[in-house]
């Protein structure tokens, strides 16, 4: 194997959230404070955020603060776009649009 194939080794760079999570939450977790949190909750939670991570890293690459824009996190934010798409589709199909009904 050439050294080039180790290019992905980037010490000092901000670690991938997934790699941090698997260590900080899933493993190596030994010292307990006197405030206890339910581990099961955390495990469920990691499953949930696993779904978010991929989009998070992609967004960050594009310089987007994903938590500001992710419709999954902010129910309201993505809604407008979906509604707009729905409205256009309905219009195209000659149906009364959702926004018409609201008025």
């Amino acid at each position: 194997m050439s050294s080039r194939e180790l290019d992905s080794y980037r010490p000092g760079e901000v670690a991938q959230l997934a790699d941090v999570l698997e260590r900080v939450l899933d493993k190596g977790i030994v010292i307990a404070g006197d405030i206890k949190i339910n581990l099961l909750d955390i495990e469920l939670l990691t499953v949930k955020i696993r779904l978010l991570i991929a989009s998070a890293d992609k967004a960050r690459e594009m310089g987007i603060d994903w938590w500001q824009n992710d419709p999954f996190l902010h129910g309201g934010n993505g809604q407008g776009e979906l509604e707009e798409r729905l409205r256009r589709l309905e219009e195209k199909a000659g149906l009364p649009t959702t926004s018409d009904e609201e008025e």
Binding site: I29, V30, I35, I37
Partner: peptide, 10 residues
Amino acid sequence: VPCRFCTVYR
């Protein structure tokens, strides 16, 4: 020696 995330004492 690293601690778990959210090791909190009162």
